[in-house]
Write a protein that binds this DNA or RNA. Structure first.
Lengths: 212, 212
DNA sequence: TGTACATCAGTGAACGCGCGTTCACTGATGTAC
DNA sequence: TGTACATCAGTGAACGCGCGTTCACTGATGTAC
């Protein structure tokens, strides 16, 4: 916990706001290192950026506010990762496949981040203090997925009306696959790429072109 | 928390073992009432069966031991629920469909139990002190699912070799669907029965017979 | 150019809480004589 | 049949821990005159 003895220099007078970024970065690093959303405590975050716990409260009024800010930032990271994974895709179905693979990879490689993004229970939407009509910060991620499914269906001449249901099916699979992978690493799982491809095939979301 | 003032009579001399069953029952009830695996604390369990915390330790050497016992019991309940759901099935595919519907229903109606069964993270297999070669108590549940998938495939003249992969796909969907339902209740989800049926159809696990 | 001062970026100590767990104990109850 | 005693099923108080959060403070730094 004192693994990072970054002899920290106190920020100059007008520059207190820098700590805010440091806090969010340290929180993200904490999730990455521990792989566990429960490790995300005010005290651990403070220690991770070489500051005492009360310093946090100059930038976030309470833990919930910090977690919400972190959530926003991490969802943006997550969406970017999926978007960048599209690069070089041949067609709409290839886009979708790349996104799905990237989704599973992200979850497997960043279980802490993924967990705080999608597994949040007591940190969940309602208890996160998100207002009634307000959108969940992760809603945009699902909208992206749905749009990609729809584009893939349309490109194959299939009805776009089924996109909603198929997107739910696909999301449930992706989420369950990541979650089971992380919570049950002792099982011998089939390769993720081929499993994702198999599901896309079953859902009618793979192109006929055989190129891998 | 003192909602149940069951003026408890201390067990007679040879009958101390009765408390063990009361503890497990109270723990299960606690999961049912709270719907949250985090509510499962030694102190809450003790209070729920009108006993002081140290009394727990006459029957379980520590919390991990209690959770393991509860896990065994709850997995048995879960398997029974799925088995009983088979009653009246017309064929192997109908068996599978009934099991899948029951799976999702169980998860949605008993989020606390489901969570302790399948979401356990820090309570997870490795940290639960399950020995290296030892089977996870939930492994039998997956074996059941796989067998049901295989029977369904065979009944349709499809190769049984694909059962393993298809069972993984199906499990990931079922688990993800339950987990997303529980953690994101504010989303407007499509009806569970038709969604489960749609997935079974996509995976080639539905009979052609149109009867619902 | 020099100095008094307001402000800013944090610190250090403490709070109350619930947790798992321990320890010495108590009072009822069955049993041996 | 009556009594002493060992045992059993718990109790009550306390421990150390990490948590989120609060409060009064301190020392460096930019600014006004």
């Amino acid at each position: 916990v004192s693994r990072e003895t970054v002899l920290r220099h106190r920020n100059r007078k007008g520059e207190g706001a820098r700590l805010r970024q440091d806090i969010l970065a340290a929180a993200a690093q904490l999730l990455a290192d521990s792989g566990d959303a429960d490790a995300l405590t005010i005290r651990a975050v403070a220690a991770a950026c070489s500051v005492t716990p009360p310093a946090i409260y100059q930038h976030f009024s309470d833990k919930q506010t910090l977690v919400r800010a972190l959530l926003q930032q991490q969802f943006s990271v997550f969406r970017n990762v999926l978007h960048e994974a599209e690069a070089g895709a041949r067609d709409a179905c290839d886009v979708l496949r790349r996104r799905c693979r990237a989704y599973v990879c992200f979850g497997a490689e960043h279980p802490g981040q993924y967990s705080v993004l999608f597994n949040a229970r007591e940190l969940g939407p309602s208890s996160l203090g998100i207002a009634e009509g307000e959108a969940h910060p992760g809603a945009a991620a699902f909208v992206d997925l749905r749009a990609s499914v729809e584009a893939c269906l349309v490109s194959q001449g299939k009805p776009r009306e089924s996109a909603g249901l198929v997107a739910i099916e696909l999301w449930a699979f992706l989420h369950g696959f990541v979650d089971l992978h992380v919570t049950k690493p002792e099982m011998n799982w089939p390769p993720t790429e081929s499993t994702v491809d198999a599901v896309l095939g079953h859902l009618g979301l793979m192109n006929a072109s055989p190129a891998n």
